[in-house]
């Protein structure tokens, strides 16, 4: 057996890193820098920036709509992130268990869950808008009526509308969490489960002491990814409720969209985009730090 020889990058990594750094800079850093530039300008959608100013930031902080939008965003994101993890994990574990037992139809089940994931956000919103239709002939309310329940004010009641938006997002987003957890679970050495079975561990104890600890990294990474995805969600809400009734379902990403395209306020929209960026980065740094401590 011979020792490994020097790799091309040993000692002089920069020539190998430069292409990747340039690509990242061109496609990620430059747009972010441009948003930063616009945020501290007086740019509108119909007028290029003419001077540096913090007026957009001041106007945003003084906007009475912002607290309500932030509250809605936090609630929408928190509920989604927790539920996406729980449902994703449940489906992933069900799949693995079903495959281990040789159950038929597991591939079809996995495909079915993934099908929702490939539906564009706008289409997702439109599909659920039809299902939640509160007309006397609306799909879900008609089904509830057959069972002796309802009708439910899915989209016209401000609180229920947010619940409906969460349901639509969960339907679409669960598949992503399922993939992450499915891959992580498949990576756990089966010997650990054989040992647990020999020791007479119950399914719950096995889950708590073997599966969950070994999925910790996957949970952390998935938390960051689904948080960022959920924070950026606006297309499905735009199609489902448009942010209404009132501002009941207007999350930060949709508020940003409205600020730019209805108010024509490019500087204000850039400030909001920066806010989203900062929140997402903070989440990533927090989880990275937590992972580092856990190692």
């Amino acid at each position: 057996m011979t020792a490994r020889g020097p790799a091309p990058a040993d000692g002089r990594p920069w020539p190998w890193l430069v292409p990747a750094v340039l690509v990242l800079a061109a496609f990620y850093a430059v747009p972010v820098a441009d948003v930063l530039r616009l945020a501290f300008s007086d740019a509108t959608l119909v007028r290029p920036p003419e001077r540096w100013t913090t007026a957009a930031l001041s106007a945003l902080l003084a906007d009475p709509a912002l607290p309500a939008v932030l509250r809605t965003t936090i609630l929408f994101t928190a509920v989604n992130v927790i539920a996406l993890q729980v449902f994703g994990l449940l489906i992933a574990l069900t799949l693995v268990r079903g495959e281990a037992r040789g159950l038929r139809g597991m591939t079809a089940f996995r495909t079915l869950v993934l099908a929702a994931w490939v539906v564009p956000g706008i289409a997702n919103g439109l599909i659920w808008q039809m299902l939640f239709d509160e007309a006397p002939y609306g799909t879900l309310n008609s089904l509830l009526g057959l069972a002796g329940f309802g009708p439910v004010a899915w989209l016209s009641d401000p609180e229920m509308a947010l619940v409906s938006a969460v349901i639509a997002n969960l339907w679409q987003g669960t598949a992503f969490s399922m993939i992450v957890f499915y891959a992580a679970r498949k990576g756990i050495d089966p010997v650990l489960y054989e040992v647990a079975a020999l020791d007479g561990a119950s399914p719950w104890r096995t889950f708590r002491s073997v599966t969950l600890p070994l999925l910790r990294t996957a949970v952390a990474v998935n938390t960051v990814l689904v948080t960022v995805q959920t924070l950026n969600t606006f297309d499905s809400i735009l199609a489902l409720t448009g942010g209404g009734p009132g501002r009941a379902t207007e999350v930060l990403a949709l508020f940003t969209f409205n600020t730019v395209f209805y108010n024509l306020d490019l500087a204000g929209g850039s400030v909001l985009a920066l806010m989203l960026f900062v929140v997402a980065m903070a989440m990533a740094v927090l989880v990275h730090g937590w992972l580092g401590r856990a190692r």
């Binding site: 448009g242 009132g246 501002r247 009941a248 409205n258 395209f261």
Partner: peptide, 21 residues
Amino acid sequence: AIYPEISNQIQILLGDVLSGS
């Protein structure tokens, strides 16, 4: 130029008032 934002505010206002918010 302000019309789209006025429209936006009317939409919000009507939603809030008609839903009792």
